[in-house]
């Protein structure tokens, strides 16, 4: 474990907590893409298949449970919670994400570290996470003004993988045989997809103005 990866995991945890706060405090999920939440639930379920087979550390196991549990709880809340579900932007959140799921799974069948059930699903989860934010970014552009908590949620979600890139550089420089091309390339693509969001987020922060994404 290094400081970059810890910062990344903590930033990811913060993004989850901010989202839970927004939904719990405002009893609303307006501006949040259910599609992105469902993709993230798939990402964690596919990636943490080794939850019970490979024990890395208590920290690793606890964080996996937190990410799986929170993503499923948010999907449940947005679909079935009496009050929250009413504020879901159903007509704006129309990204046909099964295309992404199919493409990522096909890619995982071709490109993986080892051709085993667990490793193919692991690679699938890495590719899927890289594009999982797309429905959310599309929804932000369509829904115009973005409330603060939603903007902070997306910001932290994007920042966490940027910390992981620093972690991979650090491990590449300090560990003799460290090569994680699948994670690195996907992580770069994932972070790049946030580039324009980060730009508009920075502008809104500098001008102390509401976050506005161009339609």
């Amino acid at each position: 474990m290094n400081i970059f990866r810890l910062a990344g995991d903590m930033t990811h945890l913060i993004s989850v907590l901010v989202l839970l706060l927004k939904i719990y405090a405002t009893k609303s999920c307006s501006g949040i893409s259910l599609k992105t939440q469902e993709l993230y639930a798939m990402v964690f379920l596919a990636r943490y298949l080794d939850l019970f087979s490979d024990f890395i550390s208590l920290y690793n196991t606890v964080m996996k449970l937190v990410f799986i549990g929170s993503s499923l709880a948010i999907v449940w809340c947005m679909r079935y919670h009496r009050v929250v579900r009413r504020s879901y932007d159903r007509e704006l959140d129309t990204f046909r994400y099964w295309i992404l799921v199919g493409a990522c799974f096909t890619l995982a069948l071709v490109l993986h570290e080892k051709f085993s059930f667990q490793e193919v699903f692991w690679a699938f989860s890495i590719y899927l996470e890289a594009v999982a934010i797309l429905p959310q970014l599309v929804l932000l552009q369509r829904s115009g003004n973005v409330d603060n908590l939603t903007g902070q949620y997306v910001f932290f979600l994007g920042a966490y993988r940027a910390f992981y890139i620093l972690n991979w550089i650090y491990r590449y420089l300090t560990e003799p045989r460290f090569t994680r091309w699948i994670s690195c390339v996907s992580g770069l693509v994932q972070t790049a997809l946030y580039a324009d969001f980060f730009y508009y987020y920075f502008i809104s922060w500098k001008n102390n103005a509401k976050l506005q994404l161009p339609a």
Partner: peptide, 10 residues
């Protein structure tokens, strides 16, 4: 070794 295969990152 085993730890090489197990993914130690989240």
């Amino acid at each position: 070794s085993k730890d090489d295969e197990a993914h130690d990152e989240l």
